[in-house]
């Protein structure tokens, strides 16, 4: 029988925007001059978030950091385990050499930590950044690797079987928001 699908709103559109604004100021406060930073979103969830953060930083400081995005398909540890069809996405960085840059890795949801691990390995193949800091909108727990975020939008306790959905209008959603689908999947 169909499992009961309960959907719980964690952040409304307004709360999401405020959270992003607060994250932006935290980034500036802790990491300094935005001109020295590169915000790199992890495809797909972190891509739009990185752009929004860059916009937010721009309205705070009058200066917009460089942005880019990475597709981690080639670095995943679960690529050939039959979970998904092997589909390669785009990676675009402002520079093919990140040596000496301060990288802010951005993702929407931090869960097991494996995605971030893959992104770290990939970024290392683009040179030797000065540092890599991790910024996430949602930390939902259940880490399988020793990875922690430097800036978190909201911590949401979840069950493993829950599904966290981050909706941005840029990806076609009717409105912004963060939801938890209880028992909804991975």
């Amino acid at each position: 029988m169909a499992a009961e699908r309960v959907e719980r709103e964690e952040l409304s559109a307004m709360e999401l925007r405020r959270t992003i604004a607060r994250m932006a100021s935290e980034i500036v406060e802790r990491l300094g001059d935005p001109r020295q930073l590169v915000l790199v979103g992890i495809v797909t969830g972190g891509r739009h978030l990185a752009l929004r953060l860059a916009d937010a930083i721009a309205s705070l400081e009058g200066v917009r950091p460089a942005t880019g995005y990475v597709d981690i398909t080639l670095y995943r540890d679960d690529l050939y385990t039959g979970l998904e069809k092997a589909q390669l996405g785009d990676t675009r960085l402002p520079d093919s050499d990140l040596s000496g840059r301060g990288v802010v890795l951005v993702d929407d949801v931090l869960f097991t930590g494996r995605t971030v691990r893959a992104a770290l390995d990939e970024l290392m193949d683009y040179g030797r950044p000065r540092f890599i800091k991790l910024v996430v909108l949602v930390d939902r727990g259940h880490r399988e690797l020793p990875i922690a975020a430097d800036v978190v939008g909201k911590t949401i306790p979840t069950e493993r079987s829950d599904r966290v959905v981050v909706a941005f209008v840029e990806d076609g959603s009717p409105q912004d928001g963060v939801f938890v689908q209880v028992g909804g999947g991975r």
């Binding site: 597709d71 080639l74 390669l88 990676t91 093919s96 390995d121 990939e122 193949d125 683009y126």
Partner: peptide, 14 residues
């Protein structure tokens, strides 16, 4: 998309 790897310094993926 693979072309990008051949243009960067570390021309290798794992």
């Amino acid at each position: 998309r693979m072309r990008a790897i051949n243009e960067r310094r570390i021309k290798k993926v794992p």
